[in-house]
Design a protein around this nucleic acid. Structure first.
Length: 142
RNA sequence: CCAGACGGUCGGAUGAUCGCCCCUUCCUUCAGGUUGGGGAGGAAAGUCCGGGCUUCAGGGGAAAAGGGUGCCGGAUAACGUCCGGUCGGGGCGACUCGAAGGAAAGUGCCACAGAAAACAAACUACCUUCUCGUAAGGGAGGGAAAAGGUGAAAAGGUGCGGUAAGAGCGCACCGCGUCUUUGGCAACAAAGGCGGCACGGAAAACCCCACCCGAAGCAAAACCGAAUAGGAGCCGCAUAGCGCAUACCUGAUAUUCGUAUCAUAGGUGCGCGGCGCUUUCCCCGCGCGCGGCUCGGGUUGGUUGCUUGAGGCGUUUGGCAACAAACGUCCCAGAUGAAUGAUCGUCCAUUGCAGCAAUGCGAUGACAAAACCCGGCUUAUAGACCGUCUGGCGCU
């Protein structure tokens, strides 16, 4: 009940701050180049949750958008499973990552439980992880 | 109604909120907004066959090697696929399965067991002659291959006759071989004659015969952009060439500036020769130095290829069928760290618990996701539905 209310509030906030572009941490861009993934992995900062692994790249000047990438390896299952994991992570990123600092790049790595776990758990874990790593911005539009 | 055979269709439904990719309308400050439309499969899978397409200039012929296919006829762009037959297995049946050419071209093989595994042979045992012995029985020679035993297989089978015992030794039927006739396009089948049995298995050992096959793949390939980038150097080989023609182009000379002349300047054309052209050879044709080593550089990106196709659906006609033709109609994914979804309800299935029950609470949702495109094959697949047929049982 509380979670539902919280989610609606976020959506309202996201909608309300749309007019004032270009504000920090609003848009999302997906990384597609192998070199970018390697650079983020090399920074070594990672946070492991039951449903996924979060990697954070080294700090750089803030960009207009938050860059993030998704990885679903052969290990977690066949093509259907990998697709489902990647799509759940993409939905999660669309909801949560506007709150992340645009001074870093992020990579979400799918684990075996990603396609089957509870969506609420995934969401809470990601928020927790961002706060732990001190890249959480409470207001999406400061 | 039960059990089964074959073929086909589908393979969760629906709503709300928030999104993604492609095409498109309009607005436009060129960054977006906006209108409308489309967006995974029967196997998209495995990548096992067959094609299209692209590149290696291309085309034709022959040979060798290698690979593939293998009853007959048809379908098809093609196939190892499909359809219809034949033959041989399985099933009461519907139906189904089949590495189904040649063993009389040749070489080799047939384990174990057994006497013997392919010019047949003879262990036990059978018959007989001679001989030794009182006898039981033994020894030597001959006949024969029926009985026993071994084996996947023992050189036709069963019955009768025959014989010292036996044996296709003779006869009948069956099998086999061969010839003829008939039916069939054919594979093959049927009938009749002849033969007295010759020809064991395995070709999934090599092999022979007939037919087919160039290679690599969309990371193909083309273009744009970028870059000193079809780069530079050295070595080796080679006739790095020769002849003829040509004033058309560049060039040279002369010039009255209009042009003329020059073939021992280059280009160009033709011929000869050399090398190369996807294993080799020949012919046509095409291209032109070739080969090796060293140094330096490049490999990001974008666009095209990219989805209108041996296309889908419907009707009619031909055909037993696979399929073909005609007409009508439709446009139906195009991503590239890879879109086609995420979340939450309701319903539908399956299932667990509780309950006398109505029902309630919870869990789960087959296999599996396009990657240039088609035709097949193979494998995976919870469940639902439809049609045709077979064998039972019951009823009228």
């Amino acid at each position: 009940m509380a979670a539902r209310f919280w989610r609606v509030a976020v959506r309202k906030a996201a909608r309300s701050c749309r007019p004032d572009l270009p504000a920090v941490g609003r848009k999302l861009e997906i990384l597609r180049k192998r070199a970018a993934f390697l650079a983020i992995a090399a920074s070594g900062k990672r946070w492991v949750a039951p449903g996924f692994i979060l990697q954070i790249g080294t700090a750089h000047p803030a960009t207009p958008a938050v860059f993030y990438g998704l990885t679903a390896s052969r290990k977690i299952g066949n093509a259907v499973t990998r697709n489902r994991a990647r799509r759940r992570l993409r939905a999660l990123a669309a909801e949560i990552l506007p709150h992340a600092s645009p001074e870093h790049d992020y990579v979400l790595i799918a684990r075996a439980t990603t396609p089957t776990g509870k969506y609420n758990d995934l969401r809470q874990d990601l928020v927790k992880g961002l706060k732990r790593m001190k890249v959480w911005r409470e207001d999406a539009c400061p």
